[in-house]
Design a protein around this nucleic acid. Sequence first.
DNA 1: ACCTGAACACCGTTCAAGT
DNA 2: ACCTGAACACCGTTCAAGT
Lengths: 217, 217
Amino acid sequence: MPQNNSELKNKRVPLNRETIIAKALEIADEEGLENLSIRKLASALDRSAMALYRHFGSMEEIQQGVVARAFTEVDTAPVPGERWDDTIRRTTASIRRMHLRHASAHLYLAEGAAWDPGLREHTERVQSLHGNQGIPEDILTRAWRIIDAFLSGFIVNEISEMEHADSLPAADKPAWLDTVEAAYSEQAFNDGVEIIIAGIRGLAAPDPCEWRTPTED
Amino acid sequence: MPQNNSELKNKRVPLNRETIIAKALEIADEEGLENLSIRKLASALDRSAMALYRHFGSMEEIQQGVVARAFTEVDTAPVPGERWDDTIRRTTASIRRMHLRHASAHLYLAEGAAWDPGLREHTERVQSLHGNQGIPEDILTRAWRIIDAFLSGFIVNEISEMEHADSLPAADKPAWLDTVEAAYSEQAFNDGVEIIIAGIRGLAAPDPCEWRTPTED
DNA sequence: ACCTGAACACCGTTCAAGT
DNA sequence: ACCTGAACACCGTTCAAGT
């Protein structure tokens, strides 16, 4: 049975890294990264599971690709004249918003450390942003670890809590849960970021911390 | 073929929640929680996989049990007269040490948020510790969220990084690196804890923050 | 009461083959 | 060059049966 071109175009998207990852993120957004499988992905692309192995070596590689793709949505553009702490406020907020946009995908499940292939490019972009601002290397290293830990921990907890809240009858909530539940909100996130920024100033003292992204002229 | 009692005792440990979880933690410590399976666990206990379903409803329940069991190793005892910030230093360090002791188990994979059945008891112990010290409830709430995020994020990153370092070729990894890495990690952890404690003092100002665990007399 | 084997509906991945 | 079906060695879980 011959099929014409328009029929093929509807189902048979050209197969390459980009289209595979795009479809994978779509499925992850609907069912979660933990429910993404090669067979499911292949069937959504109207291909056999094995066809995907021409483009990816393993399921892990596909998951890393999905995370990398989501991180391209994060705002890491240099803003001339921006002070280092405003850069931190802007980039961390953007990362959090990206994760909330893809909350159902559970991206944190595949998100390894900063040297992970999926996060490497993102990490380099943000690090060079701060490097260009003139932050001393040892301060940047120490600051990075604390921010990175808080950020990833906060996001995992926040998304888990969001999903749990939807599935819990109000009468069953013990009193101590309020403390935990109230924890994850916009204000909570900002509290943490401000505390860490103040802490970095403490680490760098008596440096006035006037590091800024260079202006054009 | 009749088997005598001593032969049975060697292989056939009595089957209950406790012995199942103990064996599950053993396997997780060797292969990681992600490679623990009901079939593997049952075979290690010389039973069929289905025998375990008399004691646990699902694999998830077993994993939560493993996490809960590991958390009983954490030092959350009340120390009369101890100031709140020293309690934070002590309990967070103990949680980190527990995770490092079970680093290969990847316990964080099953560690949900604080309301997760596996962490519920632990959470209640620590919260009541601080409640008894007289920390105002709103301060405890704000402090908890930041510490919890930093702690879980730091531990995941630290263990991931340790394993990444282990997989480096020996030539790329001089002998002194272990010490430096370990020391740096320790310092980074303490940096974060101290910054957050200072931040909590800022949130509570002008309160002198002299909250302490009650003494006996 | 306690445990079993067989079966179901899935996985990721490898292999040899098809056009 | 690109894709396929069949197979392998696993999963978690359900069912009906055995002692």
